[in-house]
Design a protein around this nucleic acid. Structure first.
Lengths: 121, 121
DNA sequence: CCGTTATTCAACCAACTGGTTGACAACGAT
DNA sequence: ATCGTTGTCAACCAGTTGGTTGAATAACGG
């Protein structure tokens, strides 16, 4: 629904592919064109072009124009968004684990459904 | 190919869905059973059961047994793996951006293909 | 044993994804 | 103007995903 949710959808989906993660890793070293990016892989140039497009629509890279070349650059901002989302819940998970809260996990007092992992009738 | 790559595949793919991210957000507050997790959504319980399975196979949650219930807990470790991956490249992207390295981006001296965004014949 | 609760399995379906090939567009060089 | 380079678009295909429903399993409470 929400816009930042769709951005996260696309960003996570984009990185859920080893080739695209590899592209990101290589772009961290240096900007590159689609042709250069495609070179090391067995697959077609078109396939890589698609991958780059996915990364671009996810906001993970941007592109400029230089003659017929369209160099690709990493775009930090969206990585930041992802980190923030993950870190928020990683921290919770860690804290709850270290406090052994898991054993007393409880909420549910708004509906018929009352107990959680332990009985409480 | 590599094992940690597959883990990242599954983890990123798992979070590329708003329902699953919502499940994670709710599990950060408290552990819960599949039934409790399913309640707020319009869709079937089975669908949520599948979502939880995806999260579990991605290593983002673990489950225990308590009678017929199978409470779900957040598992920090995999979040950590993701953060580390992302942060590594976010940092690069940011540094390169602030140094305006983008303008001089160059590598390629190992093959016939020589120049990048600028000519160098 | 039998019923209830909690959850999963199985089969199916529509939509999406990652790959292919072939044609085409954009630009620079000649 | 035409050619080579660089990249995209379009159509297609196989495999995966997210959802459905209905049946099955697991664990407890009589």
């Amino acid at each position: 629904m929400d816009d930042s949710s769709m951005r996260l959808d696309r960003a996570f989906a984009a990185l859920a592919d080893p080739i695209r993660r590899d592209l990101v890793a290589r772009l961290a070293v240096s900007d590159a064109t689609v042709g250069q990016l495609a070179e090391p892989y067995e697959c077609s140039l078109q396939a890589i072009s698609k991958h780059v497009k996915v990364l671009e629509e996810a906001g993970l890279v941007t592109r400029s124009r230089d003659a017929q070349r369209r160099p690709v650059h990493l775009h930090a901002e969206t990585f930041d968004l992802m980190t923030q989302w993950i870190e928020r819940y990683r921290r919770e998970a860690e804290e709850r684990y270290s406090r052994l809260d898991a054993l007393l996990a409880r909420t549910a007092d708004d509906e018929g459904r009352t107990d959680l992992t332990k009985d409480a009738s």
